[in-house]
Nucleic acid binder design. Structure first.
Length: 287
DNA sequence: CACCATGTTCCTTG
DNA sequence: CCAAGGAACATGGT
């Protein structure tokens, strides 16, 4: 469930349930997701520790924990990769097939489950130091954005996936933001005009915040026990018929009419990932 | 069987 | 040294 909006909604959901809870036991079923932390190391740090806060940074979840001994705190870093999920369930609930880590919290278990095991659940906080500004943060200014884009010859769509440029935009919302800004995904980042850059910055913010609102408004089934697994990202929302279909404008909609001009949405491949856009609205010029 | 998938990192190439 | 492109990671859906 991986881009910024999905992680934000998850963090808001988890924070009030985790804060104040003490970790009484740790079970690791897939050590790979801890990399480079070891199972022994994770258990040593987490046992007896208490959750004091949960925040988001880019697509990462940062769990702040207080050690049972003393007052010091430390950070547990989570990342959902492509298919990760986190939820609480009763102690005796059935074990998810790809559950990677369980934290015993008393009556409930906290579960990190990830089908493909690309996600992370680790004490290594190094990755967050590489992130660019938050899209909603004060540092994500037009000046910063313009300066960063000026130094890149990559297509703008590819550049938006660079987490050191701006943190949290992924493959779905990169296409959506460029559609909203009426900018061709193929334009070299350095060739964007000042006006396009400011429009894109606003579109990134608008598209992400609209998705957060959507995810906060819709009923979600976090453990996904039922088939209509409630996580609201692409392809997963199984709630009100028609709602999901109307949410994304271009992503995964090749061959459908553009909601703005009616032209056929196109799919292209950039940096080995799919990009969706309207060849008429997003012709690369001033829009 | 073929191809596709919300992400990141590492390796190679230029 | 840097940028860019591709493969790898691992599993499942269509």
């Amino acid at each position: 469930m991986p881009e910024l909006p999905e992680v934000e909604v998850l963090v808001r959901h988890l924070a009030p349930m985790l804060e104040g809870k003490t970790i009484r036991g740790v079970q690791v079923r897939r050590e790979r997701v801890l990399r480079p932390t070891t199972e022994a190391g994770l258990k040593r740090e987490l046992r007896g520790a208490k959750f004091v806060g949960v925040i988001r940074r880019g697509k990462f979840l940062l769990f702040t924990l207080r050690r049972s001994t003393g007052r010091s705190t430390f950070t547990l870093l989570g990342h959902l990769g492509m298919t990760g999920r986190m939820f609480l369930q009763p102690v005796n609930a059935p074990v998810a097939k790809h559950a990677a880590v369980f934290l015993a919290l008393g009556k409930l278990d906290f579960v990190f489950e990830d089908t493909r095991y690309f996600g992370r659940f680790t004490l290594d906080t190094g990755p967050i130091k590489l992130l660019g500004p938050e899209p909603f943060g004060d540092e994500f200014t037009p000046g910063y954005f313009a300066e960063a884009l000026r130094r890149s010859a990559q297509p703008i769509k590819v550049k938006l996936l660079d987490q050191s440029l701006v943190a949290g935009v992924g493959n779905i919302y990169a296409s959506e933001a460029l559609f909203d800004a009426r900018i061709s995904p193929r334009i070299s980042a350095r060739r964007l005009t000042r006006e396009q850059i400011e429009r894109l910055r606003r579109s990134i913010r608008n598209v992400l915040s609209a998705a957060i609102v959507f995810g906060s408004t819709v009923p979600l089934d976090w453990s996904g026990a039922s088939r209509g697994d409630g996580l609201f990202y692409y392809g997963q929302y199984g709630g009100v018929p028609g709602v999901y279909e109307e949410r994304l404008q271009v992503y995964d909609r090749a061959g459908h009419p553009c909601p703005r001009c009616g032209a056929s949405i196109k799919r292209i491949v950039q940096a080995a990932r799919s990009t969706f856009f309207c060849p008429r609205c997003q012709c690369g010029g001033s829009g």
